[in-house]
Nucleic acid binder design. Sequence first.
DNA 1: TCAAAAGTGTTGGGGTTACACCCATGA
DNA 2: TCATGGGTGTAACCCCAACACTTTTGA
Lengths: 230, 230
Amino acid sequence: MPVHQHIRVTADAVVLRFTSKEGMKVLLSKRSIPPHIFKWGLPGGFIRNDEPVEDAVHREIRDETGLRVNYLEQFRTFGEPERDPRGRVLCVAHIGLIKPSATKLVPGAGNKEARWYPVRELPQMAFDHDVVIAAALDHLRLKMRNEPLAFELLDAKFPVSELEKLYEWLYDRSVDRRNFQKKIHNLGLLTTQQEKLKHPLQGRPAQLYSFNRERFIELREKESYIEIFS
Amino acid sequence: MPVHQHIRVTADAVVLRFTSKEGMKVLLSKRSIPPHIFKWGLPGGFIRNDEPVEDAVHREIRDETGLRVNYLEQFRTFGEPERDPRGRVLCVAHIGLIKPSATKLVPGAGNKEARWYPVRELPQMAFDHDVVIAAALDHLRLKMRNEPLAFELLDAKFPVSELEKLYEWLYDRSVDRRNFQKKIHNLGLLTTQQEKLKHPLQGRPAQLYSFNRERFIELREKESYIEIFS
DNA sequence: TCAAAAGTGTTGGGGTTACACCCATGA
DNA sequence: TCATGGGTGTAACCCCAACACTTTTGA
């Protein structure tokens, strides 16, 4: 019966950042205590008795890395009995999305070392955190076709190509640049900005856009089904 | 720190069944103990210290209703600090799908009363279980466009119209019967059975089909994206 | 002037939409 | 024979895929 239950619960986050230059990266922090000491793991930790789960995630991310995500969503709870050598520990896993301009790590913000790792070149991970990251990406793949999550990973103003590269990275296939532009513009999800991209490394400077959330909400009410990416 | 953490965890299930005649129904059991005594709630309960979460769900469903689901998937964990008057209790919520032919409730299987309720006409619910049910349906809506979950809700052999009505119910809009048939058949997901529906209430007996899972897996490997329903 | 990346236009084909008609059964 | 639901077919249309060419910048 419940009185005998002894299960502990952590809240952890797969915090992602994306740039076309560096691809998708995940925020890891180096463990400074056992178990799995010195391995890399997801930011997170035990939730407090009267603390909402999401609050715990925000707190842990901030304490361990000094960062603040602008989107946070729970996606699954991992609970295999043997996943933590300390005993039964459930992990309520979240996806955090952060804009590239807000990802500068403050060295020694907490007393833990934190780093951005390319999602496809992970170091040796603590616990089952490699599985958690893979599941997070699967969840993203499921949602990003219909929900405007991509814009949470881009700066407020961005070129269309950056959006395109994000989808290309996530679904691991190339897309025709011109058809992609047409489709996005036909949906009307982008608002043209005054500015253009300053000092591109090469080539013509790209027009900058912002995400038109009002338009998206309006669309969602009108249409029975919105497909951002196929 | 973790030593002071006192959080309990339940595993609960939104078990669904669907028929075109009766629509979508959810399995509820009447609470026989406080809190929320005599209200209706989801089958579920505290997980054991060394028990996998999914096993706990299967066990609770069986004990409370005598049923066995043929599909079970975790979809979210509910953890607001005030959701349970007994203290901090997390609920790892699952979706269970069951075929109509396997849903006969054995009265008094456990010592709890269980019943199938129409999802759109719920009684007064215990805890936040009405919210949990709504979230389960949202999750289903997200997945059923691309994943073959619909077939978990239909008997092994079913008429196309039953599949169509299921999608119509879930997405709450009508679909052209003829176009729906064409699309499904073009995908090649259905295997024609020898039999036809016996003794329809009215009209011509429908051809029965079964889900061709091999074909679906083959499709998934070949195509970058499968859309069962738009 | 050239390379590189961005923006715009055209075409053909496949799939969806919107239709009508016939078939099989029970009453 | 009639009502009811099931099965099949066709045409218009739209969206998407596959293309080429022009524009704007830095070097």
